[in-house]
């Protein structure tokens, strides 16, 4: 092979870059986030799977409705009224940001900007 040293060096760099995930992780990386679920309520405003997948879209819609359109009427789910509010609704049951929100958000490197305006509970 011509230019053996140069080509091998380049190849080694590429292969190592591609294989970074195989070296970087360790046994601690395999732990899945464990959430502290609320004890004072059985149901959320949407079924569990939907909340898991779409809570950010719901919160974003609520934010737009309340802050931008001035529509702060509560949502009615199964005959119960829920205010469209992070602090007055969500955080009533999910009292801990550290043990609930942050668990998955840190795991999947998501940084929602809720807390730019909202006050996070003191923990």
């Amino acid at each position: 092979m011509y230019d053996r040293v140069k080509i091998s060096t380049g190849l080694l760099v590429v292969v190592l870059l591609v294989l970074i995930p195989f070296f970087y992780n360790n046994d601690a990386s395999k732990a899945a986030p464990e959430l502290t679920m609320p004890t004072n309520a059985k149901a959320c405003v949407l079924p569990r799977a939907e909340m898991r997948a779409k809570h950010m879209q719901l919160l974003n819609t609520w934010r737009d409705e309340v802050v931008r359109k001035g529509d702060s009427r509560p949502v009615l789910v199964d005959g119960k009224e829920y205010p469209k509010s992070l602090q007055l609704n969500c955080m009533e049951c999910h009292t801990s940001k550290v043990n609930f929100c942050d668990k998955c958000h840190n795991y999947s490197s998501v940084r929602p900007y809720c807390w730019d305006c909202h006050l996070a509970p003191v923990e």
Partner: peptide, 11 residues
């Protein structure tokens, strides 16, 4: 987004 569970995907 239904069932696009990032935690499961990352695991």
């Amino acid at each position: 987004r239904s069932n696009v569970d990032i935690e499961a995907i990352k695991q």
